Amino acid sequence: MMLSFIGSIGYLAVEQILNLTITDKTDVYSFGMVLLEVVCGRKYMKLSTEVEFLGRPAEEKVDPKIKGKIAPACWQVFTDIVQGCVKYEADERPTMGEVEVQLEYALWLQEQADITNIHGGSIGYLAVEQILNLTITDKTDVYSFGMVLLEVVCGRKYMKLSTEVEFLGRPAEEKVDPKIKGKIAPACWQVFTDIVQGCVKYEADERPTMGEVEVQLEYALWLQEQADITNIHGGDYVLLSETIINLKP
């Protein structure tokens, strides 16, 4: 039987492609591919160039927009996470809970490096309590992760001081990276923006836990997969909502 997949084929684990098996471990594989897209600034699997592209070291594939911004210690943990997520054998992949713990550790390593790097650092990813009094908790990691998610869909650093007033005031739908515009299903987008808005709340105690974020991200991925399966003609999705991401108190 010939199987025809419409949508995000590059994010599907081999067992999902071959026999339509969907488990927690297929979600882990998809999440690993999303993490790769974060650092590469492009869809990781492009059939026309994948042989040349995939054969290069990951360090050479880092998006020029964030090149030089990732601390070596954070990068080492991040690449270990990704390599675990995209293992061929499903039972060799970590659980999403284990991925969550390692991502929190990677973010913590980045934050520590940024604090000591007084001439630079990713200030746009720091929660207000971290900037004002150097408080670092699980909820500051959640804030940073929310900002990373925004960068994924925007294809650029979200906080640019020279343009932030105009840029931040626009609906999130207008900021989606042209490379993925039309590829995000409305149902997935709604859950995704809810996740982001929760992560970047000004008050730390109003943000979700990383565990809650994990559950909602898995749900968003599932909604995208279901939409792609039913989108038999492969047409672009249209986002009619207008979501303002509020980073102020």
Score class of each variant (00 low, 15 high):
D138W: 03
T95N: 07
W75N: 08
V238I: 15
Q112G: 13
A172M: 15
A172Y: 05
G155H: 03
E225K: 11
T193K: 01
D138A: 14
L103I: 15
L54A: 14
G84S: 12
H233P: 00
V128M: 12
V77T: 15
A172V: 15
Q76L: 11
A58G: 07
W189K: 01
L223G: 02
P171M: 09
L109D: 03
E52H: 07
I244M: 08
A113C: 04
V176A: 04
V99P: 00
I118S: 13
Y143M: 00
V213N: 01
T79P: 00
K87M: 05
A172G: 07
G41F: 08
E52A: 09
Y11N: 11
R156Q: 13
K43W: 03
T163H: 10
I136W: 02
D138H: 10
E111F: 08
T193F: 02
K179A: 15
K201R: 14
L132E: 14
T79A: 04
Q197D: 03
E89D: 13
I180W: 11
I81A: 03
L247M: 13
S162D: 12
R156W: 04
A204V: 00
S122C: 10
L150T: 05
E206Y: 02
T79K: 13
V82I: 15
V128S: 11
V82E: 00
L20S: 10
K248W: 11
Q224L: 12
E59C: 08
A90S: 15
E166I: 07
T135K: 12
A227P: 13
